[in-house]
Design a protein around this nucleic acid. Sequence first.
DNA 1: ATTGGCATGTAAGAAGTTACATGATTAC
DNA 2: GTAATCATGTAACTTCTTACATGCCAAT
Lengths: 198, 198
Amino acid sequence: MRTSMKRQENKSRYALLGMLTIAPMSGYDLKKFTEKSMNYFWNENYAWIYPTLKQLEQEELVISSQEKQEGRPDRHLYTLTEQGRAELRRWLGEPTAFHETPRNEHLLKLFFADQVPLSITIEQMRFWREALQNMLASLEDLDRQASAVAWEQEVPQGRPYRLIALSYGLHMVRAQLMWCEETIAKLEGLPQKRGKQR
Amino acid sequence: MRTSMKRQENKSRYALLGMLTIAPMSGYDLKKFTEKSMNYFWNENYAWIYPTLKQLEQEELVISSQEKQEGRPDRHLYTLTEQGRAELRRWLGEPTAFHETPRNEHLLKLFFADQVPLSITIEQMRFWREALQNMLASLEDLDRQASAVAWEQEVPQGRPYRLIALSYGLHMVRAQLMWCEETIAKLEGLPQKRGKQR
DNA sequence: ATTGGCATGTAAGAAGTTACATGATTAC
DNA sequence: GTAATCATGTAACTTCTTACATGCCAAT
């Protein structure tokens, strides 16, 4: 019999602890930070952040302090404790499960595209390309800012982990774009006129 | 309690309808098919498949027939109806939301790797590389099988969508591997000895 | 004898999203 | 005047995973 009541991983915990190594932040700050600097590989939303912060506080992995503000809700600033840092380090050393299947809806549609006229598939591919181009532009933006100053100072041991992470994002988006271009060219080369598919 | 079964997007519906364009299949078959041919961009599990098939049947997008078998449960074979095919086509033509953030736990760890000795990060990267190499091997396997015969016959209009999808998988895994090699080399070039991080 | 494949399904829970609720301030 | 930003939070919901439950057959 299995009574173990498995305490599930909940990766958001570690994302929050990690961000708090950079500076004490509020729930709002944490959300903004993920949006600005981690959006190409991570996201968080308020409905998780606030309860998770409370839980982390109960476990004494963070402590909170309040900043009074006029005309708006108080800011709850969360600071990492030594226990919190230890917990983060423990997790960083753990083996990481390889996730092979982030579901890709674009690809799912392509896979069954024989059910639909070629023109529709080409249109779908063009939309995808456009989204990727936007993504690339925003990553290149981030890269310019990042290379400039901010992160060198944050990671003073000469280990540019954040830049390396960013280069992952750039590699991936560029690879996707190249495949996209290649594929659109291929599809445009196919004979257009077809009767109804069966 | 679930009475209304609200008509939400539920991508699995379309994945199942799509697979049933290839041949009538049972829940078991559908799972096997995703594992064998779609694992690099999609997954399904029984706990979704069986209830979803029932729902699709109620909506008359599929019909089921039973095959009696000795000594094992009957096979429920599901066949796509014309309405099912129409519903699939409708979805295939719909604009596809671009999902920018498949969470990547490997990258999350790398992002906060300054909290931990360099050797740990290198070890993490090597494990990741190994997983990617396995993935690549299995995709190349699939590619060999696929290029051989099967899918050309399934898609007789001369539109090799499944091969193109597969080439997406290959592009991505190769790009990840290249980045991985690059990064491991970079990290191995950094000075090893360090006091405790702060 | 034991693993793996065939074949169906359910219950419970974890993870993640969307909509709601509030309300002042600042920038266009 | 209207939109965006600051700032917190909850409720309801969907989506997805894990564990459970059953049991035969074929191969090692």
